[in-house]
Amino acid sequence: MDLPRIWRLKSQRYKLEGSQCKSCQKLSFPPVQVCSDCRSQEIEPFRFAGKGSVYSFSTVYNPLTQFTEFVPYVVALIDLAEGPRITAQLTDVKPEDVSIGMKVEMVIRKISEQSDKGAIVYGYKFRPPIK
C-alpha cells in the first residue's frame, strides 16, 4: 500500500471518523460522499466513540501475507453503539474467549507491516473494555 493512501485514511484509522448525513442524520462508517438512505450530498464528518459489541467473528489461520506475524488472529464485525457496523481485528483477547454479543472498545494498534522496507500501518482494533 502506498504512503499517500495510508495518510489519506488516517482520520478513519486513528479517530474512527465516519460521516453523518445533515439531511436525515444517518451515520456511516466508512464515510460516504452521498447518503445511502436519502441521497443527500450534504455530509459532515462524525467521530464514533469506539464502543460496540461483536456481531460475528472468525479466527484466521491462513492469513493475507502482511498479517502472517499475527496468526492466529481474530477478525470481527462489530456493531458500534451509534449504529453502523464495522470490520476490524480483535486484540488483547484469546480466540476461545470471544463470543457474539461481547462488549468491545477501540484501541490503536499496529495493523500490519508492508514488508521490511515498507510502511507500518497503525489503526483501530477492538478489545474487551478495561474497567
Binding site: Q12, P63, V75, I86, Q89, S112
Partner: peptide
C-alpha cells in the same frame, strides 16, 4: 481499505 486492510 476497510476489510482486507484489516486482515480479512
Amino acid at each position: 481499505d476497510f476489510e482486507a486492510a484489516m486482515g480479512l
